[in-house]
Amino acid sequence: MLTVKDLNVWFGFPPDRVDAVKAASFAVAPGESFGLVGESGSGKSTILRAIAGLIDTWSGRIEVDGKAVAGRTRDRAFYRTVQMVFQDPYASLHPRHSVDAVLNEALTLQGMDDIDARITRLLEDVGLGRGFRFRYPHQLSGGQRQRVAIARALAAEPRLLLLDEPTSALDVSVQAEILNLLADLRAEHKLTYVMVSHDLAVVAHMCDRLAVMQHGRILEVMTADALRRGAGQQDYTRNLIAASTGYSRS
């Protein structure tokens, strides 16, 4: 479904050039859920943005569904295959657009017909009733906003969903709801996920396999079971797992 090979991403020009991702390679099979974990600045979100076409300073090879993509240009077929959910639901919805306007625009741009019925169905899919259709973002809670953002991503009926820390800005009880929703949607629509998170427990819960990143490099790719066992091959991975299990007085 997705193949990333020798991906380098950088920002700025020499001498201020920052290499955010260095020679990253991984592959995600159709229907799989793949995690990218690491601390802030490890380049995990940058990989998602490069795949989505939001960054043009990258080299290497990105293949989606067997087709290679280039630079920042993506055709309409790409957007019907790949969609993204952003970290902060307070920043990813236009403050002046109602839920209706957001979904309407997404559906129109994808050239869908029967928009009215589709909006109703999308809202039902993400667990929001009709009552939410004409609300503005400021009338929604964080969890509801994230549901709208997920509905917007689903509007194009994609097969690959890029999830950039979709629950890190939410309360834990709301996080559980959103994670359950994502799991349901994946089963229902046969979606493939690539999920970025700093929370190892969330990734272990959601993903089959994951890549551990540090300073822009992928240190290792491991299974969720190995993560739960704490069986990292690198010291960094083991330390990260130990630190994540909680605080213990030194």
Partner: peptide, 10 residues
């Protein structure tokens, strides 16, 4: 992010 999201809608 909402501009990026709109870009992703095409």
């Amino acid at each position: 992010d909402y501009i990026a999201a709109a870009r992703l809608q095409g």
